[in-house]
Design a protein around this nucleic acid. Structure first.
Lengths: 217, 217, 217, 217
DNA sequence: GATGAATGAGCTTTCATTCAT
DNA sequence: CATGAATGAAAGCTCATTCAT
């Protein structure tokens, strides 16, 4: 951000710019996301937009931050180890779904299409990193002592993170976000990944189908 | 395609253009996908490119077709009902992974970012439709007589399709495509979704944890 | 026009663009009429041009309108039925000549070469229609009660319109626009067509040479 | 022309190229006149076209020559001084109309839109010059001893040439070429210009309305 | 502070022309 | 002789960004 808003009206201006940005991102995709369009939808002049955001990337970075803050909230509420596992998963899924209800399509664009700011490129994306870390925490806390580690944990984490993202973003596109069935299916999915993470470590016959593919290598 | 190649060298030209296109799509994303860049990477003049592809959209449509043909091959080999369920899932997962090894990142861009050709816009994307249909077939054949139907099946299908896509595309980005762990985890994921599709229809106590969320509404 | 100018300087920009456009149209013809050339001559950037005119066609349409407004003024001043016929013809010819003095060659290009905007294509060109209507009015008012009608009038109108256009545009090309002889000859031409329109309806021997070709079919 | 055709088939090739060129010129105008399009319509490869015509300009120059030969034929037949004036005008008008019946719209494009070959630019266009000379000859022969000269003749010639061209080309566009009324009106027009050329030299009261504008300057 | 006019690099696409086959 | 694949300059147009008002 170029300068901090000092008065109330500039804070409102910034807010309307961010809303317009999220709206356009979801509605027209990254290729339809132009600063002029954002300014017009926000009802601000293009000059005002550039008074607060030095360039296009800084603008989506701000939008991204808002979105990710919501996601991270969901992950934090799922990280409380005193709560039983199911409840944690439920909190995670509900939080993630909730975070996508305002601008359903925007988040996928943010995560998949929009380029990362230059500096965070190589050290992985900052926000993406946090999200993955949150997923790993969930896996570890879920599996408690039995949780996998190393490569195995890394892969499970990636699978959990990307499966949830894929399902939620697609559901947003299909208008299925508020469907109870989707919520249920998603919880089952998360739970299944969590449980599989434990099981493959201490394979016990008959517990689940997972052992059908029992790790040999 | 604007015209069929008659001489040998033009066939080679077309092939190199498609390769370059897939390469750039994966490397620079949709916004970095410019016809000039494709021509340059392909080592042909921009004019040659336009001799075979009337416009940018026709070009990605051709790339998309190549990619989707591979995916559909995987789905077809998983559709053989005489083969046991596990084998079918294995064939599907292996086929999907294989289809992403040449240009790992390109397919996500193709599916998520790149705009569809104007005519296939409203009737859903033709290729996307086929992919989803293939997933539904897998679910139905997997669940045999017990398979869910209607809304429930619709959601399960979307979840299967988007979870697999999400995981594979992310794995491609992370360089995990060839990891055996990823393959295993993915098969477990698919199997879990398939099994859950049955179970929630005819819930039997003790079979799986899925009933923990047993449908109430 | 894409947007109305709000500040003074933009009005000047638009004016200079239109002037440059008319200039180039006359100097280099339609094939030499490129938006980049117009912008350069106008002394503005190509981006500024496109801020006011959404595309090339909208630009010439604006130039055309300016030109046609002048022509229509000439026709209107020739439509006053209280004025004697000769005076009306004089007003028409003088008006038409005057309308071509600023950018002598531009108008021919506008009328003959430049493509019409897509929407006015089939319903005949709007401006061309007005011009022809004006010519027909002149013929009818000139011939008073004796004026021809139907097919005959249609042809006379087309001949009047195209002969005047042809002569004036050629005179502009040859630098003869300001020659008094041209003005005289043009008036004679118009008067002759008007008179011929009457005579062939009520052929009286000896009145004019026109009956030499007296209509037989 | 790049090389003279030696065999029969190449003569046929050239003929079909010229026909295609005239066709396209009339149908799509100068901006739609592309060498590739001509080759395609002619049913020849683009390479063959360039074997006979070194460039685009040489091609239209050839088309122009064919057209002008027909026009010049009309003018020649109107130049025979032993024939009475009316007959000469009739021959001219009929010849001009006939010359436009094959590719009605092509000739206007040729005369008005298409650029002249570089060398004939400044010394006026060669063909255009011939046409104007023919018109002057008609005027002089028509007016016999009384014909005007100098500036006066120059202007009359330009008016005659441009009026006829304007009317005929417009008639071609409107599909009026074969209308007997058009032929009649055109002859009257030519005759009127011829007669006016004489009359203004030896003004006699009461003969025609032309003296109403009697030259004062 | 806010505005919006101005900028120009860069994109997609066309088409006259050459030359290997 | 004929073919058509290949070329690339140049066109129309967009949009991130600056800066005078």
């Amino acid at each position: 951000m170029r300068k901090e808003p000092r008065q109330g009206r500039s804070r409102a201006t910034i807010e309307s710019i961010l809303d317009a940005a999220a709206h356009i991102l979801g509605e027209r995709g990254w290729s339809g996301f132009t600063t002029n369009a954002v300014a017009e939808i926000a009802g601000v002049s293009i000059g005002s937009l550039y008074q607060y955001f030095p360039n296009k990337l800084a603008l989506i970075e701000a939008v991204r931050r808002r979105h990710f803050d919501e996601i991270m909230g969901a992950l934090r509420s799922a990280a409380d180890e005193r709560v039983p596992r199911m409840k944690r998963i439920e909190a995670f899924v509900d939080g993630v779904i909730l975070a996508h209800t305002r601008y359903p399509a925007a988040h996928r664009v943010l995560l998949e299409e929009a380029p990362r700011s230059a500096d965070s490129r190589e050290s992985h994306d900052e926000f993406g990193l946090w999200y993955v870390q949150g997923c790993r925490a969930l896996l570890q806390s879920a599996g408690e002592a039995h949780a996998a580690q190393g490569d195995r944990l890394h892969i499970s984490t990636q699978v959990l993170a990307s499966a949830v993202a894929g399902v939620v973003h697609n559901a947003a596109r299909q208008g299925l976000l508020s469907s109870p069935g989707l919520r249920l299916e998603l919880m089952t999915l998360v739970e299944s990944i969590c449980r599989n993470n434990e099981l493959t470590m201490v394979p016990e016959p008959g517990v689940g189908s997972c052992q059908a593919f029992g790790e040999r290598a």
